Simulated scan of single mutants.
Amino acid sequence: MIVLFDADVPVHYGFMLLTSGDEYPDLSNTWAGQQNGLAGAATPGVLSMITGLHTGRVPLRIEWHATASEPGADWEEIVDVPFTPPSVDMCVRSFDDSFDVRLPDTGLLRARYCAAGMDAARDADTVMSEEPTVDRYLLQLWPDEEAAETIVRQTSAIAAYWHGVARETPPAAEHTRDTGENGDDDGQDGWGEDGQEDWYDAWAWGDRPPSDRLRQLRGNVLGVAQDHRDLLDVFDGWDPAVQRAAARWLARRAFEVAGMDDIGWVRPALTAMDLGEPLPEPFTSPEAVFPLLWTGFNGSGPVPFDASQGARHRPSFAVPALFAAVNDDPLEAVVDAFSHAEATCDGQAHDLLTGLRSRFPFPAGR
């Protein structure tokens, strides 16, 4: 085995390419007619690789094997595609960056793309330079004259989504680009001057583009968009005071469901949240609180956990709702507080939404 590349790749719009050229293909054409949407090899000489992360750094390792390689048990997503590189001199390209990769040989190869942490990275959306990476990727290449496309393993929701997109995209001969009156490409369905976000928006936001404020949010906004697109528009339409009040209510509701709202060392933190004051110890950071869910604080006992409610440890999901509710950005606060409260209320999410609608202004039909 030869390691051809092993580094963090800066991504934007959630993709990487293995290519020999400087031009970006229409990304949707790379998986057109395939069964999988993570590794696209339908455009000759180009291999596209989808990432869970939208913006930030993702670790990518590329290996060359003499013969077939067994997939590792720690990889959550694995797909195989036949790939014929046009040259031994290739490069890994993302939106703005390029890294040279030299292959030992060309010819028909099997390309095995492996991923881990895609759903978590989709929820994170963005990783800043000082933050740890979330998802990671491995591309293995080896000569194989009988290489065929195969979904070897699929576990995440985001991988299932992209596989579905690929299956709904007709083969390239049928998959034509939109054109203007003179037949020229209008650049609106893939990688034209103004259209590079179209395919990503269709996945992230559905058939209704987000406001600039929603698009700029970090945190769990994309996770909420997948199941509660209308709710995001409601949050966005509230004034900051309502956003803040709803975030605090959601955090309190999460603590109630988790059985934490009446614990002595927890109550001061909830009061501080309501008053807009700094959170007291031990709520200096999520990392400081999580161990105390099992050991308690200042000699107190651990947070009660009712196993009869299921395997979910609700306190672990409630704590992030509190830190979300004190976010400086009130819109991000309510979006993330809802995301964590919904996770805490697993099995009771309908009641959470009903309570939210009864206490805060919702437009008719939303």
Rank of each mutant, 00 (worst) to 15 (best):
Asp230Glu: 10
Leu231Tyr: 04
Leu232Trp: 01
Leu232Lys: 03
Leu232Ala: 01
Leu232Ser: 04
Val234Met: 14
Val234Phe: 14
Phe235Ala: 14
Asp236Arg: 06
Asp236Met: 06
Gly237His: 13
Trp238Thr: 12
Trp238Ser: 11
Asp239Cys: 03
Pro240His: 11
Ala241His: 07
Val242Glu: 14
Val242Arg: 11
Val242Trp: 05
Val242Ile: 03
Arg244His: 06
Ala245Pro: 05
Ala245Ile: 01
Ala246Trp: 07
Ala246Lys: 03
Ala246Gly: 12
Ala246Phe: 02
Ala247Trp: 04
Ala247Met: 02
Arg248Leu: 07
Arg248Val: 13
Arg248Phe: 12
Arg248Cys: 09
Leu250Tyr: 08
Ala251Lys: 05
Ala251Gly: 02
Ala251Phe: 01
Arg252Asn: 01
Arg252Lys: 03
Arg252Ser: 01
Arg252Asp: 01
Ala254Asp: 07
Ala254Gln: 06
Ala254Ser: 11
Ala254Lys: 02
Phe255Asp: 07
Glu256Arg: 06
Ala258Arg: 05
Ala258Lys: 05
Ala258Leu: 03
Gly259Trp: 11
Gly259Lys: 15
Gly259Asp: 06
Met260Asn: 10
Met260Pro: 14
Asp261Glu: 13
Asp261Ile: 00
Asp261Cys: 00
Asp262Lys: 13
Asp262Tyr: 00
Asp262Val: 00
Ile263Arg: 09
Ile263Phe: 03
Gly264Leu: 02
Gly264Phe: 03
Val266His: 06
Pro268Phe: 09
Pro268Trp: 13
Ala269Leu: 09
Ala269Phe: 07
Ala269Arg: 09
Ala269Glu: 08
Ala269Met: 04
Thr271Tyr: 00
Thr271Pro: 00
Ala272Pro: 08
Ala272Asp: 15
Met273Asn: 04
Met273His: 04
Met273Thr: 02
Asp274Ala: 09
Asp274Met: 02
Asp274Thr: 14
Leu275Ala: 15
Leu275Gln: 15
Gly276Val: 05
Glu277Gln: 14
Glu277Thr: 10
Pro278Trp: 05
Pro278Phe: 06
Leu279Trp: 01
Leu279Lys: 02
Leu279Ser: 10
Pro280Phe: 04
Pro280Gln: 15
Glu281Asp: 15
Pro282Gly: 07
Phe283Trp: 13
Phe283Glu: 07
Phe283Gln: 06
Phe283Tyr: 13
Thr284Lys: 09
Ser285Trp: 05
Ser285Lys: 04
Pro286Phe: 12
Pro286Gly: 05
Pro286Met: 11
Glu287Trp: 01
Glu287Leu: 10
Glu287His: 09
Ala288Met: 05
Ala288Leu: 04
Ala288Cys: 11
Val289Trp: 10
Pro291Met: 08
Pro291Cys: 10
Leu292Phe: 11
Leu292Lys: 15
Leu293His: 13
Leu293Pro: 08
Leu293Lys: 06
Leu293Thr: 03
Trp294Glu: 15
Thr295His: 11
Thr295Leu: 08
Thr295Arg: 14
Gly296His: 05
Phe297Gly: 07
Phe297Asp: 13
Asn298Cys: 07
Gly299Lys: 14
Gly299Arg: 14
Ser300Met: 08
Ser300Pro: 15
Gly301Tyr: 06
Gly301Cys: 02
Gly301Thr: 07
Pro302Phe: 15
Pro302Asp: 11
Pro302Val: 10
